[in-house]
Design a protein around this nucleic acid. Structure first.
Lengths: 158, 158
DNA sequence: AAAATATATTTCGTGCACAAAATATATATA
DNA sequence: TATATATATTTTGTGCACGAAATATATTTT
């Protein structure tokens, strides 16, 4: 009946709290702009490219193709993007933002809670960097393959 | 077309990597012991109590009642727990582990990757604590309500 | 006692997230 | 040319995760 949490248990608890915060933010975004967190991430990435392949998008965002396909379907349904089969290689599908997508994106709030961003920006730069490097270190220790992504790899697909 | 990520963007990327690692671990656990991460968390918590209310379980695990109900359904289907309506107050439902549930739990692997645990344990204690406190700090900054849970609150329900 | 309010849980609907299988196409090999 | 292999995407099936609504019960107020 004792509640003896090891330090690793507490690490996991803290990570779970972050996961929950990201999820709650995503649900909150739906109220604010009609887009979920993952949808907003996809739009943001699309805005960086004139057009991009589904698979490259998945690599950049560190998500499976299946997941990205689902998100793209919902965004396409909302008229925020277009999909177009490549003429050269009909296995490939290019995705591009519509003007509507670009408009909505420009008015959309930040993926992180404003409150977090505000608190974070008040920290000293060295402290911000210490936090970032600790998070990156933990992520790496958790055996997450680095986002094995180079701009060159994507660009050569065009 | 530039790839200018702010430090906050990178914070979010690191958090996403952790989220993904936790999810992949969960899927890996299914192969190893037939239980997902959330299911294992629930079993672990159940093992700490003779019996516990659904709602208290949700509070401790920082999940919604709806989510916990789903997990409990799947575990009950696997014969790992029992649910019983309280006689005093028939709105309340007590949950308790079966012997099977306790057995499976005792043979189950850690929620965190063995590799992570191994690397983490090799660190100096002060370093472990620094990592933990940074994670907790970020979680707090992300406006996650602390697990507003006191043992007394649960015990008084009995 | 009846109505209003509060509490506990479940159901419903939506959206990720994945692996594995299916589909479609392209390229290399026989 | 036919067959095998590789590549790109979508479909299918499972399991979280949530809020809102529904259900059931208990308690308080009128």
């Amino acid at each position: 009946m004792e509640n003896h949490n090891s330090i690793e248990d507490n690490v996991l608890i803290a990570i779970r709290q972050m996961i929950r915060a990201v999820d709650l933010r995503s649900k909150n975004l739906v109220q604010k702009c009609g887009l979920t967190g993952p949808q907003l991430s996809v739009l943001k990435e699309l805005a960086k490219h004139d057009e991009i392949l589904v698979g490259n998008l998945a690599k950049i965002l560190n998500l499976s193709n299946a997941t990205v396909t689902g998100i793209l379907d919902r965004l396409q349904h909302k008229q925020m993007l277009l999909k177009e089969r490549s003429q050269q290689d009909r296995r490939k599908t290019f995705v591009r933002l519509t003007d509507l997508g670009r408009d909505i994106l420009s008015g959309a709030p930040s993926l992180l809670e404003e409150q977090f961003v505000h608190k974070f920006r008040k920290l000293q730069v060295w402290e911000q960097n210490l936090i970032l490097s600790t998070l990156q270190r933990v992520a790496t220790m958790m055996n997450v393959k680095e986002i094995d992504y180079l701009a060159a790899e994507v660009i050569k697909e065009f």
